[in-house]
């Protein structure tokens, strides 16, 4: 029996140590989450205002800019945003599963949706992947997708300058017509408990998808800006453009794409940290339960040992007497 209590005691200690670690990780993730959520919310104003302006501009005139052109899809680019590190519950699994599901159905994902009918993609649609975060890149490699670039050097709250290489690459490749459609796969942060994996089209810039993304932004966060009010209060003809609408648009559009990718990165970061926080909280809770049970077992074993000893002594005394 003595050996048994010793083993249990050792076990309690080891579980206790694990609990300390998971508890610490939970708190770290919690602090990071708050920061990430804050920056995700801060970006919303900019995104909403930029979109607002774009709507006004596009109402005034139909400009032919490459970023607005809808082409038949022959090649598709997916920007897959995941985390660098594990131990964050099903965060990476969810976004990867969702992406894989969509990529297995290329006709659906390659279709260009427009208000006046759809444009079907070509049959042998090629798909390339940009991996943001190590886990996504690993997945693309394993599944034999063509991984054209991998970015994994981000801090927990990325700055706009950090994601510049990604947006630059995406914009350049699109303008060169190497890709006909660009999709971002990210995890939308709804609350500390719910995060949803999402795929959004960023190029060509489509009203439908931008509106969807902005609406999603509006759903959570208390200071969500009112997106419904995009209707210009003034007739667009009254607007003055300096130097001209074309120039203004050619500056706004890339910014908008950049902002969208930036927003997706921030949402993913916020989701990652909250997923990790939840995973670690669950681990801490499980460790606590385990310790409780082990303690009970330990006490039982100890009591059993004492009882046995007393019985032996009593037995011995009786034999002598």
């Amino acid at each position: 029996m003595a050996v048994n209590t010793k083993a249990i005691k050792r076990r309690i200690k080891s579980v206790g140590n694990t609990k300390k670690i998971t508890k610490a990780m939970e708190m770290v993730a919690g602090a990071k989450m708050r920061k990430a959520v804050e920056s995700a919310i801060n970006t919303r104003t900019y995104a909403t205002l930029a979109w607002d302006l774009l709507v006004k501009l596009s109402k005034q005139q139909k400009v032919k800019l490459p970023l607005l052109q809808v082409r038949q899809v022959k090649k598709l680019l997916v920007v897959l945003i995941t985390s660098n590190r594990g131990l964050c519950g099903s965060f990476n699994a969810n976004i990867i599963r969702k992406t894989a599901e969509q990529l297995n159905n290329p006709v659906n994902i390659g279709r260009q949706r427009a208000k006046n009918g759809h444009l079907e993609p070509v049959k042998d649609l090629a798909i390339d992947v940009i991996g943001v975060g190590k886990k996504g890149a690993d997945f693309a490699r394993k599944m034999k997708y063509n991984l054209i670039a991998s970015f994994s050097e981000f801090s927990d709250t990325p700055k706009l300058d950090d994601i510049w290489p990604i947006s630059k690459m995406v914009l350049e490749e699109y303008e060169k017509k190497n890709y006909d459609k660009v999709i971002v796969a990210y995890t939308d942060f709804k609350s500390a408990i719910t995060q949803t994996a999402k795929l959004r089209q960023v190029l060509p810039i489509s009203e439908v998808d931008l509106e969807k993304m902005l609406r999603d932004l509006g759903e959570h966060g208390d200071d969500a800006t009112d997106i419904a009010v995009v209707e210009p209060k003034l007739e667009i003809d009254e607007y003055l453009f300096e130097p001209n609408a074309q120039t203004v648009l050619s500056i706004i559009l890339p910014k908008l794409v950049e902002t969208q990718i930036y927003q997706a990165t921030l949402e993913s970061a916020a989701s990652e940290h909250s997923a990790r926080m939840m995973a670690m909280r669950n681990a801490s809770d499980a460790a606590r339960d385990m310790i409780k049970e082990l303690n009970l077992n330990f006490n039982k074993a100890r009591q059993a040992a004492i009882t046995q000893e007393i019985a032996e002594i009593a037995g011995g005394a009786a034999a002598l007497g």
Binding site: T43, T45, Y46, A47, L49, L160, T259
Partner: peptide, 9 residues
Amino acid sequence: FKIATPEKV
């Protein structure tokens, strides 16, 4: 008057 950057207002 409002100045917004992608990072904050």
